[in-house]
Amino acid sequence: MLSFILKRVGQSILVLLITGLVAFSMFTFVGDPIDNMLGQERTMEDVERLREQLGLDQPFVVQYYRFLEQAVQGNFGVSYRQGRPVAEILLERAPATLELAAVSGVLAIAFGIALGVFTAIRRNGIAANVIMSASLIGVSLPTFLIGILLIYLFSVELGWLPSFGRGETVDLGGWTTGFLTVSGLKALILPSITLGLYQMTLIMRLVRSEMLEVLRQDYVRFAKARGLSDRVINFRHALKNTMVPVITVIGLQLGSIIAFAIITETVFQWPGVGLLFINAIQFVDIPVMAAYLMLISVMFVGINLLVDILYAFIDPRLRVAA
């Protein structure tokens, strides 16, 4: 078990080192930092001195090591566009993205499981068939079109909900939250539905197929023979046993929610990390791009590692196979 964990941790670190290398080489590929810092009027001595001062005369490996050293401490340099430390900007933007992701995650899980169970139990009913067909369309509808559709319905036509921004926020010691004001909560509704819809359909379809599988098992038939009520069978026996694969998928989808937040945040002009990243690409703001890349890869690699290790605890066969 220990060797399995060590092996997986080692692989994860290797992946992070490689993404770090990608992030670092963006700096070296895209322009010379000396050009960015010194103006037109400069002497060769100035250039040499600055090069030495910044350590740019060192071998690539040494420079990369220094980059990693700084990155681990959360220092990604200064944004080319805003002139402020990247870490500061990211921290300022993080609450918006995390709140949005949390709300849409909860929505996706709650509605996904409920609808999944419903469509499995009433699999020949009209309502269940309508939901299943709607989910098919939902899967092929691009996220940004869902967002625009919601804006058109609820902001333009009905005028019920705001179409952009976070509304009023309250500052709780560096963490700005939209949960405490009415306008903040109203602003959350459309973006979180947009972001959560795809994950919801995914969870729903998974729960449905797992439920259908479990309901065919002998122990369910036996429970029925014992005269247990449908509700006890469906929820106490069947649903419980569908949860292992569902939890895995939820875990893996957690990272996707943060990544897909980029699209939702752009549609709703939500001032989060994703919008920051898109703006960074548009203006070729390398430090911000590199920091976002590192942040998101730490997150994805971490989640994958956790899921793998949890799986090894649950299923001993995997320990030998890996």
Partner: peptide
Amino acid sequence: DVQLTFPSILVAMLIFGVAKGV
């Protein structure tokens, strides 16, 4: 395997960003 751990739209965005910078 490494690439599969990231959503492909994110990978495409990053490549686009880097290539645009170059």
